[in-house]
Nucleic acid binder design. Structure first.
Lengths: 142, 142
DNA sequence: ATTTTTCATTTGTATATACAATTATTAAAA
DNA sequence: TTTTAATAATTGTATATACAAATGAAAAAT
């Protein structure tokens, strides 16, 4: 259904949620080749770039709560893609060799997704949209 | 954390999800006065405007799946805000008197939220952002 | 008039996420 | 140095949402 026929098409609540759901779906497609949901994929890439990264920092980077990060890590551990090494109150998350092997594929997913959404609105306009969303996000995150 | 310090700040997946979560939070605040999550509130308003509306149409309007609508309606029934009357394979959802009494308060929530997010970016710019998001949404929704 | 297909809704189950409470540890204050 | 406070991570529980399967009814085809 076109948003123009939606009663709440002018409402940011409605709009941002609807968009997020659709973009999520698109992203899921792009990440199917590695059989990971996008959220797991992004977390994994973060850890590959910075092995030993702590859950708290991951949470900040991904703008998710620590508890959510714990859950994501659990799943990635089950898949043998990361290991957690805990000393005292801090944990460090490391990618496994299996994850390292997967890196090129992960990058391909990101690339794939980027191309997919560039096709939708064009690179320029998509980039502007992203900027607008970030601007709003930043003003909100107190 | 500012998005500018986020590794994936240029990624639509990341951006749209992060924005949706933040906007949701803002909306929850606005809807607290009626003790309803925003999604329930919007559904209820739809049904108040068009009593007897069917779940399938509600789903289309809100761009949610029918199963999600069933769940939302269940909650609203528990709260005695709507009733479902089923004949054959179709259902009609009606607002209760309690819901009708609530209508001014619901409108106040919408108004409140709208003001809250206008304060963030300004009316003009917010409106442009919404347009951009809708445009993307529309091109995506196959 | 039966059978088949389509359709609207619901149910079972799964994922993503959050909040509040808990645990365990380190740092600060007394 | 003992107590207190702050911090990092986790766990328990709850909400929002979806997909796939099931149900039940109406419409279409034979």
């Amino acid at each position: 259904m076109k948003t123009s026929t939606c009663k709440y098409a002018q409402c940011l609540y409605f709009t941002s949620n609807a968009l997020a759901r659709k973009v999520e779906k698109l992203a899921i497609e792009s990440w199917k080749r590695v059989d990971l949901p996008p959220s797991h994929g992004y977390l994994l890439m973060l850890v590959l770039e910075e092995p030993g990264m702590q859950p708290g920092n991951i949470a900040a980077q991904l703008q998710l709560t620590p508890s959510t990060i714990t859950r994501l890590i659990e799943k990635l551990e089950e898949r043998k893609l990361v290991v957690r090494i805990t000393e005292g109150k801090i944990s460090n998350v490391y990618p496994t060799p299996k994850a390292k092997e997967l890196l090129p594929e992960l990058k391909a997913c990101v690339q794939d997704f980027s191309e997919a959404n560039s096709k939708v609105l064009g690179k320029e306009e998509t980039s502007k949209l992203v900027q607008g969303m970030n601007k709003f996000s930043d003003k909100l995150s107190g």
